[in-house]
Measured scan of single mutants.
Amino acid sequence: EADPRLIESLSQMLSMGFSDEGGWLTRLLQTKNYDIGAALDTIQYSKHPPPL
């Protein structure tokens, strides 16, 4: 049985245009305790590393 928090967070992320191919988004949301903001921060950080 999927956690209702996961279903809600995942559906919101999917509606933003993200995909869960391979389950990466599910794993990220689980790691971030279903916090969409924290997940988005992680995605943003990985796409744009800080300048040295």
Rank of each mutant, 00 (worst) to 15 (best):
residue 19 S to N: 10
residue 12 Q to T: 14
residue 17 G to R: 00
residue 46 S to M: 10
residue 11 S to C: 07
residue 14 L to D: 08
residue 29 L to R: 01
residue 51 P to G: 13
residue 51 P to R: 13
residue 46 S to H: 12
residue 47 K to Q: 12
residue 16 M to Q: 06
residue 45 Y to E: 15
residue 11 S to Y: 03
residue 29 L to E: 05
residue 47 K to R: 13
residue 8 E to A: 11
residue 28 L to N: 05
residue 49 P to F: 08
residue 23 G to P: 01
residue 35 D to K: 09
residue 19 S to A: 09
residue 28 L to D: 07
residue 47 K to S: 12
residue 47 K to H: 11
residue 17 G to Y: 01
residue 20 D to N: 11
residue 14 L to S: 10
residue 35 D to T: 00
residue 26 T to F: 00
residue 5 R to C: 01
residue 19 S to I: 11
residue 14 L to N: 13
residue 40 L to D: 04
residue 29 L to W: 00
residue 52 L to Q: 12
residue 29 L to F: 01
residue 3 D to V: 03
residue 19 S to P: 02
residue 7 I to D: 06
residue 25 L to I: 06
residue 36 I to M: 08
residue 36 I to C: 10
residue 50 P to D: 12
residue 37 G to Q: 10
residue 2 A to D: 09
residue 47 K to N: 14
residue 31 T to G: 10
residue 44 Q to W: 08
residue 9 S to D: 03
residue 51 P to D: 15
residue 28 L to G: 03
residue 38 A to P: 03
residue 33 N to D: 10
residue 13 M to T: 01
residue 28 L to P: 04
residue 48 H to V: 14
residue 42 T to L: 06
residue 36 I to F: 02
residue 16 M to S: 03
residue 13 M to C: 05
residue 50 P to S: 11
residue 26 T to V: 02
residue 10 L to C: 01
residue 15 S to L: 09
residue 5 R to H: 05
residue 31 T to I: 13
residue 19 S to H: 13
residue 33 N to Y: 06
residue 10 L to Q: 06
residue 48 H to C: 12
residue 32 K to V: 12
residue 3 D to Q: 03
residue 39 A to F: 00
residue 2 A to E: 14
residue 28 L to K: 01
residue 32 K to E: 10
residue 52 L to R: 09
residue 41 D to W: 04
residue 36 I to T: 07
residue 43 I to S: 04
residue 29 L to Q: 01
residue 41 D to Q: 14
residue 20 D to G: 01
residue 22 G to V: 01
residue 21 E to K: 04
residue 1 E to K: 15
residue 38 A to K: 14
residue 46 S to K: 12
residue 30 Q to F: 05
residue 4 P to I: 09
residue 4 P to S: 12
residue 48 H to K: 15
residue 7 I to E: 11
residue 50 P to F: 07
residue 50 P to Y: 09
residue 18 F to K: 02
residue 16 M to C: 02
residue 5 R to T: 06
residue 41 D to F: 04
residue 12 Q to K: 15
residue 47 K to F: 06
residue 33 N to A: 07
residue 1 E to N: 03
residue 48 H to Y: 14
residue 25 L to K: 03
residue 40 L to E: 05
residue 40 L to W: 06
residue 29 L to H: 07
residue 5 R to P: 05
residue 17 G to P: 00
residue 32 K to S: 11
residue 52 L to H: 15
residue 23 G to E: 09
residue 49 P to K: 14
residue 4 P to W: 06
residue 19 S to D: 14
residue 25 L to N: 02
residue 46 S to T: 13
residue 23 G to K: 08
residue 30 Q to I: 11
residue 38 A to N: 04
residue 34 Y to G: 05
residue 36 I to G: 05
residue 17 G to A: 01
residue 32 K to Q: 11
residue 21 E to D: 08
residue 18 F to Y: 15
residue 50 P to V: 08
residue 38 A to Y: 01
residue 20 D to V: 00
residue 20 D to L: 00
residue 24 W to N: 13
residue 39 A to K: 05
residue 44 Q to D: 12
residue 42 T to M: 08
residue 38 A to D: 09
residue 24 W to A: 10
residue 45 Y to P: 09
residue 15 S to A: 13
residue 17 G to D: 03
residue 28 L to M: 07
residue 4 P to D: 04
residue 22 G to F: 01
residue 30 Q to E: 14
residue 50 P to Q: 13
residue 43 I to E: 07
residue 2 A to S: 15
residue 12 Q to L: 10
residue 50 P to R: 13
residue 18 F to N: 04
residue 37 G to Y: 10
residue 27 R to C: 07
residue 1 E to T: 06
residue 46 S to G: 13
residue 1 E to P: 07
residue 26 T to P: 02
residue 4 P to N: 13
residue 16 M to D: 06
residue 38 A to I: 01
residue 46 S to V: 10
residue 9 S to G: 10
residue 48 H to D: 13
residue 14 L to A: 10
residue 51 P to S: 12
residue 49 P to E: 14
residue 10 L to I: 06
residue 30 Q to R: 11
residue 23 G to N: 03
residue 51 P to L: 10
residue 27 R to Y: 06
residue 35 D to A: 01
residue 6 L to H: 05
residue 10 L to W: 00
residue 36 I to V: 15
residue 12 Q to S: 09
residue 47 K to I: 09
residue 42 T to V: 14
residue 34 Y to I: 00
residue 41 D to P: 03
residue 29 L to C: 01
residue 50 P to L: 10
residue 48 H to N: 13
residue 29 L to S: 03
residue 49 P to M: 07
residue 49 P to I: 14
residue 33 N to K: 12
residue 16 M to F: 12
residue 50 P to I: 12
residue 3 D to W: 00
residue 24 W to E: 14
residue 26 T to M: 02
residue 50 P to N: 13
residue 17 G to V: 01
residue 1 E to R: 01
residue 48 H to R: 14
residue 35 D to Y: 00
